[in-house]
């Protein structure tokens, strides 16, 4: 009976496969963009303006997703935009996670004045409107990919701190924390070896969520021209440019939006699905 229980059929992992598949494609394209993109994303050809995607009459075979109002290849720009999005998702996501989680673990486990200080800072931090804060911050420290990443870290660390603090407090109240004490484990070792593994699934969920949010924030900053230089293709920049010519060439706007939507959705779904699949407690 025990064996049957261990290998019981589980919910179909289609969520894991679909989201994982899209993310593999996303990171693959992001990594290989310079080699696999059919055109130079910055090359303008004013004789080939606003070419439609391949299934519409008038399309050129060399431009499967058409061209924008300056005759630049949309597919190539989308691929190079993926590189920017992937860089932001990984670096900003992981750095935010590290900073926020460490503070959340300390506040939730040690409580007392450590918790007081961290929690009050979080409260104050969260009273700023985040997007305005980001725009202000980038305006002050200057545009560029590094600034965007710094802005995301500075704004979003509170997301991790709040969630991780609450989960750490809940876990610290469990008897296994006291059992570790009885076993002679030091406080710090208890936090790292007993509590952290139980908080990790929550951290993973928020991390995948945060990676999606980081891409959105980068897109918003690109949209208002505060991300990387306007020459570099980004999804947010493409959406901003596509907005101008929406009636003549909708594909310039639609493709980056679909890419953005699918990527952000895949991140959140992947986090959830991963947890369901590999967490020994939920399994």
């Amino acid at each position: 009976m025990d064996e049957a229980l261990r290998t019981s059929p589980r919910a179909t992992p289609w969520r894991l496969w679909l989201s994982g598949g899209w993310l593999t494609l996303f990171f693959g394209v992001a990594l290989l963009a310079p080699w696999i993109a059919p055109h130079d994303p910055l090359y303008q050809d004013l004789f080939l303006q606003r070419l439609p995607p391949f299934w519409i009459d008038g399309a050129e075979t060399g431009h499967p997703l058409g061209t924008d109002s300056l005759g630049r290849d949309v597919a190539s720009r989308l691929m190079h935009g993926a590189s920017v999005a992937a860089t932001v998702a990984l670096i900003a996501g992981l750095a935010t996670c590290l900073l926020g989680s460490v503070l959340g673990l300390l506040a939730g486990f040690y409580r007392g004045w450590v918790d007081q200080v961290i929690s009050r800072i979080v409260d104050i931090w969260m009273s700023f409107p985040p997007v305005l804060f980001a725009i202000l911050l980038v305006a002050v420290i200057g545009t560029g990919l590094t600034s965007v990443i710094v802005a995301i870290i500075v704004i979003d660390w509170t997301r991790f701190t709040r969630v991780v603090r609450a989960e750490t407090m809940a876990q610290a109240r469990m008897d296994y924390t006291e059992a570790a004490h009885v076993a002679g484990m030091s406080r710090f070792a208890t936090l790292m070896r007993e509590i952290l593994p139980n908080v990790a699934p929550v951290i993973l969920s928020v991390l995948t969520l945060q990676m999606g949010i980081a891409i959105v924030v980068e897109a918003i900053l690109s949209f208002v021209n505060l991300s990387v230089s306007t020459d570099d293709p980004t999804w947010g920049g493409m959406i901003a440019e596509g907005r101008v010519s929406i009636h003549q060439a909708w594909w310039v706007l639609i493709f980056p939006m679909i890419a953005l939507f699918l990527t952000v959705l895949s991140f959140t779904q992947f986090g959830d699905a991963l947890r369901n699949r590999f967490d020994p407690v939920l399994r």
Binding site: M174, D175, Y176, E178, A179, A180, E194, P197, N198, P280
Partner: peptide
């Protein structure tokens, strides 16, 4: 008292 809580589930 409660082994569900006193044994680390992971």
């Amino acid at each position: 008292q409660d082994p569900m809580s006193s044994l680390n589930p992971r």
